[in-house]
Design a protein around this nucleic acid. Structure first.
Lengths: 228, 228
DNA sequence: TCAACCCAGATTGTATACAATATAAAAAAC
DNA sequence: GTTTTTTATATTGTATACAATCTGGGTTGA
């Protein structure tokens, strides 16, 4: 039964690994994910890799083009606005729901995550810092105990994290991470609608720190070469 | 290329067919979906059926237990509250977003769907009526033009529709369908927060029309046979 | 020189064979 | 007669073989 457990988790392990690598920006949006090499790397058949890629595509992290294959999903500028708006709706509501209702343990957990995040950024470890920032939001949206809302929020957070990695020049950016401690503060001591507003503002900050220049080759070429 | 198109759509066709059958309550929650018969029915190999079932499971319509198989998802009473809460958040926000912003065509479309729905219920065709009711909500959440929010809302609507079919005794229930015309009314002529409130109330109506008795066999037996 | 075309290699799509596992019924033991 | 064990059947899980399709490079023709 040890065997069955480990073979069952195998797929989960591969999924987690890929998800991690993508979210840490080791694989940038647009990067191809060909099945055979992945199968080789993880020592399984393409069947398993296919399942994982399918799951990642349903999760919105990977895009599968028929007969072409999987790649890390790219987001167009118009979609970007929609994803951030969606985040405001869901995470705003969740922030409001948990205001004044967190256990001392949860509060301490959040503060410790904020400290860890600051530390990483100060050390200049931007990749890990961004990852911690994502985990902060993950923890927050799970705190309400509403699984469907938490799942949706996590999908949106992951996607916007990819968006940041697509549009932010690698050096710059970084989350305004003192925002996070202010957020915890108001969620612990403030009123629900205050928390909702602050969360929406915070997401706004992230959004407006982006350089929304379309990098897609087609569009650039079209804009450059158009007769008139 | 006609060929490739049709074979590519094949999977989509199977998915749609299963989704429809489940949402029209021809397959009740808990019903098993074994791969081989499905493959037989649709004239494809298990590979395709597996992909469809995997997708339905990611969509939250089907549950896949390892080494056991797929079945229409069942929802526990605790989860029910979470799904309805999630619907209130997402659909409430969407109702607010579209208030006063629909095109005349969209408004006419919504009214015509409400009329069709009423007609079906009056004819006593409950199954089709419920389906139309679902489509009304689908159309509404797409009207805002925010794809991520619309997708999430549609998933939640589908799931709550399943919940209704799991918990409502087959004869009773039915959506309070004059609610729908009032909703359109306020979305067209009212204020955003009025629309949001009314949408939340409407979802509340659906929720509180349920009989939240746990039908699961184990629980019943345990409660019945326990010594003291 | 440029365009269209075609071919080879690589990659994905599907079916199928076989292994692993669960379920339920029959047999054995108490 | 009841419980446990065993066994048979059905079902899912995985790997692999082969077919369909795409991609890019080279060739041909104007």
């Amino acid at each position: 039964m040890e065997k069955s457990k480990s073979s069952r988790n195998q797929e989960q392990v591969i999924y987690d690994r890929l998800f991690d690598v993508i979210l840490e920006q080791k694989l940038q949006p647009g990067a191809r994910l060909t099945e055979e090499p992945l199968a080789e790397i993880f020592g399984v058949s393409r069947t398993i890799i296919r399942r994982v890629l399918l799951r990642l595509s349903h999760e919105g992290v990977v895009e599968i083009k028929p007969n072409v294959g999987a790649s890390v999903v790219m987001t167009s500028p118009e979609e970007v606005a929609q994803f951030f708006e969606a985040r405001k709706v869901v995470e705003g509501a969740l922030a409001s729901m948990i205001t004044g209702k967190l256990t001392p343990y949860q509060v301490e957990m959040l503060y410790s995550m904020v400290r860890e995040e600051s530390r990483l950024f100060e050390m200049g470890n931007r990749a890990k810092g961004l990852r911690k920032s994502t985990e902060f939001h993950f923890y927050l949206v799970e705190a309400a105990g509403n699984q469907p809302l938490a799942e949706m929020a996590k999908k949106l957070i992951a996607r916007t994290s990819l968006i940041v990695s697509q549009y932010n020049l690698s050096g710059s950016g970084g989350c305004a991470c003192n925002d996070h401690s202010a957020l915890v503060e108001v969620i612990v001591n403030g009123q629900p609608d205050e928390a909702e507003s602050l969360m929406r503002e915070h997401i706004d900050h992230i959004q407006h720190g982006l350089f929304l220049k379309d990098k897609s080759v087609e569009t650039d070429l079209y804009a450059l070469l158009k007769p008139e």
